[in-house]
């Protein structure tokens, strides 16, 4: 009946795929300002070609860093994300990635282990059964994508701060860096303050059921105070570190804090 099929309410499937293709890191895309700067309107307004691509890029990046500093100064990092009743859950909750669902990682529960690295006392790897023994909580929150769409879902798992305490992580370190099983090796850093936020969760279940492949089986990091791309799926390792190791989208130009 509908002319177009929607993977995500309001998001055109073809555009999504087109976006995914755009997401492939290539030279043209990295120099993203060039496309914008050649815009006639802007040249017209400034009256000359002052918007040289690299200097504009530098300027925008420093404003972005300035924004981070302003946010850190005026906002409370422990503010809680709003929670919702079950009736508010978005059905079906969208699958979203830079690849099709068919290309999503297929992780074998028996072989999978969560590797723990960096500034922690106990670096032992964790099997899924061991992780399932940890106390779990459920929260219904809104997932907000950097693209603008959003969806409400129900996530169940262990608060990350409890796990960090359990493994003796140095919580004075700056980041927890996650690596994932996605193709092209998805990864993302999370600032320690957000990692210790009471709602930040190692998620094992969606809507009461074992996390399906579409949503990141076997483990996702759910951070309801961050944009979706800071919520890694198919997590295979976490590293507590003082080094900024970059991330899949962060390296391409999304603001690394991206807190909401």
């Amino acid at each position: 009946m509908a002319k177009r099929s929607f993977l995500i309410p309001g998001v055109d499937r073809r555009l999504l795929i087109k976006d995914s293709i755009k997401a492939m890191p290539d030279l043209a895309r990295r120099r993203f300002i060039t496309g914008g700067a050649s815009l006639g309107a802007l040249t017209l307004l400034t009256g000359c070609d002052v918007i040289d691509s690299s200097s504009a890029e530098e300027m925008l990046k420093s404003v972005s860093k300035f924004n981070d500093a302003v946010q850190a100064f005026i906002f409370n990092p422990d503010a809680l994300a709003p929670t919702f009743p079950e009736s508010a859950i978005t059905k079906p909750f969208p699958f979203n990635a830079y690849y099709d669902l068919d290309d999503a990682p297929e992780v074998s529960a028996a072989d999978w282990k969560l590797e723990v690295r960096g500034l922690v006392d106990n670096k032992k790897s964790w099997t899924l059964d061991e992780l399932y023994q940890l106390p779990q909580v459920t929260q219904i929150t809104r997932h907000i994508c950097v693209e603008g769409w959003s969806a409400i879902g129900s996530w169940t798992g262990t608060p990350l701060r409890d796990f960090l305490k359990l493994i003796g992580a140095d919580t004075r370190a700056k980041y927890v860096w996650f690596q994932c099983a996605d193709k092209d090796g998805y990864n993302s850093p999370l600032d320690m303050r957000s990692a210790l936020h009471p709602q930040t969760q190692m998620t094992f279940k969606y809507a009461g059921d074992i996390l399906p492949r579409a949503y990141g089986f076997p483990m996702k990091i759910r951070v309801p105070t961050k944009l979706g791309f800071k919520n890694p799926k198919y997590v295979v390792s976490m590293e507590v570190t003082n080094d900024y190791k970059g991330g899949y989208w962060e390296d391409q130009g999304y603001n690394s804090f991206s807190g909401s």
């Binding site: 993203f32 060039t34 914008g36 815009l39 925008l60 404003v63 972005s64 924004n67 603001n255």
Partner: peptide
């Protein structure tokens, strides 16, 4: 008629 080249660039322009 868009600025920034892609979403990431558009966001940087918007928040500047």
């Amino acid at each position: 008629y868009t600025l920034g080249g892609w979403l990431g660039g558009g966001l940087l322009w918007h928040f500047a």
